[in-house]
């Protein structure tokens, strides 16, 4: 992965101002994404998991510049897209697309399926009318929809078929990266597996990279090469999918994994039950957010401590947080790195 990554995000912050009072002065900020560093290689799927409100969707939108980052940088194929204005961004957008959770909301009900899928070509001034007709038919076929679907409207389709339309639209410009924001969470299980299979096939055929955002850890494990776990605006652990499930190091990852109900009554696992809820990103605790939630005795130590990701094993990084690591892991990190943060990814 040390070859140049397709997408490289560094110290990204997205804060939303909160205004109040008579003058609507800014009274605070929701720190939705608070210092995230990550890379996605060509042809790779990075899964992003976390609970609602942890900032994963905001991160996904910021990465494709649907939201303006507050600080930090986003490089796409070594081009800095962090502060590029919308006009200059347009030609670059061909390379990164997005699939949304609710295809009913993200497809215009007044447009035929053909015009929905054709629109990206028109915006980018590609092809003649006849060519575009051909391309749309090809895309419909590729995502498993009949050619007759083109002249119908999105609301005539079921949830799974609508998601196929959304995928066809995202594929239209032959992007390099697709941000998938909860693409299967609104679907029934039997339909979910159809869409997951399609995404895997498309990735192999076109060499796509995915940033795959979901709250369902089994789904993320299934589709990802590497998985990043997010908690309250920060990434707390990144590792290969196999490793993060076999050998999670961060207490939050462990709790999250143990909470997944297993579809096997023989294998009822012991659960790590968390108390309380995710703290508000409006007023995050100054130290370790998860240590705070657990009421960990070492929480006071983490105030002012650099909780950046550090390498704990090859291909495995975890936040250097004494509240959330075993004693051995914490000692290992402390001695190995003695203060310096590792910011280059493995």
């Amino acid at each position: 992965m040390s070859a140049s990554p397709l997408l490289s995000v560094s110290q990204l912050r997205v804060h939303f101002p909160v205004r109040g009072g008579v003058m609507l002065r800014q009274t605070g900020a929701v720190r939705a994404v608070d210092g995230v560093t990550l890379d996605i290689g060509p042809g790779e799927t990075l899964g992003l998991v976390g609970e609602s409100g942890c900032g994963k969707s905001t991160l996904g939108k910021a990465v494709v510049r649907l939201l303006k980052p507050t600080s930090g940088s986003i490089h796409f194929r070594d081009i800095d897209i962090t502060r590029v204005d919308q006009r200059s961004l347009r030609p670059l957008r061909r390379d990164f697309q997005m699939i949304f959770q609710d295809p009913a909301e993200s497809l215009d009900p007044r447009m035929s399926v053909r015009s929905i899928i054709e629109e990206p070509f028109i915006i980018h001034g590609l092809g003649t009318r006849a060519e575009r007709v051909q391309w749309v038919d090809g895309l419909l076929d590729r995502v498993g929809l009949p050619a007759s679907a083109a002249e119908r409207y999105s609301f005539e389709f079921s949830g799974g078929q609508r998601q196929r339309i959304g995928i066809a639209r995202a594929l239209a410009l032959k992007p390099k990266l697709i941000v998938c924001d909860e693409p299967v969470s609104a679907l029934d299980v039997s339909i979910q597996s159809q869409i997951l299979n399609l995404l895997v096939e498309l990735q192999q055929d076109f060499g796509l990279s995915y940033l795959f955002i979901a709250h369902d850890l089994s789904v993320v494990k299934h589709i990802s090469d590497r998985v990043a776990v997010m908690y309250l605006g920060k990434i707390v652990e990144v590792a290969t999918a196999e490793m993060i499930y076999r050998d999670p190091r961060h207490a939050y990852t462990k709790a999250l994994l143990s909470a997944i109900p297993s579809p096997d009554p023989q294998a009822r696992r012991a659960k790590i039950l968390l108390e309380g809820d995710v703290p508000s990103p409006l007023d995050p605790p100054p130290g370790s957010a998860f240590g705070h939630r657990m009421g960990h005795p070492r929480y006071p130590e983490t105030i002012g401590l650099d909780l950046a990701l550090r390498k704990i094993a090859p291909g495995h990084q975890v936040a250097a947080d004494p509240c959330c690591l075993t004693r051995e892991d914490w000692e290992k990190l402390r001695t190995a790195h003695a203060g310096e943060a590792v910011d280059e990814m493995i």
Binding site: Q161, S190, Q192, S193, V200, L217, S218, H222, I223, P263
Partner: peptide
């Protein structure tokens, strides 16, 4: 059977093709 086989589980190999139930409800 179709339902049970179509769920991705932690045990299944990553990016393996999941069995599906064709069509929709």
């Amino acid at each position: 059977r179709g339902l049970l086989h179509s769920i991705p589980t932690l045990e299944k190999p990553p990016k393996s093709i999941l069995s599906t139930i064709p069509g929709m409800v």
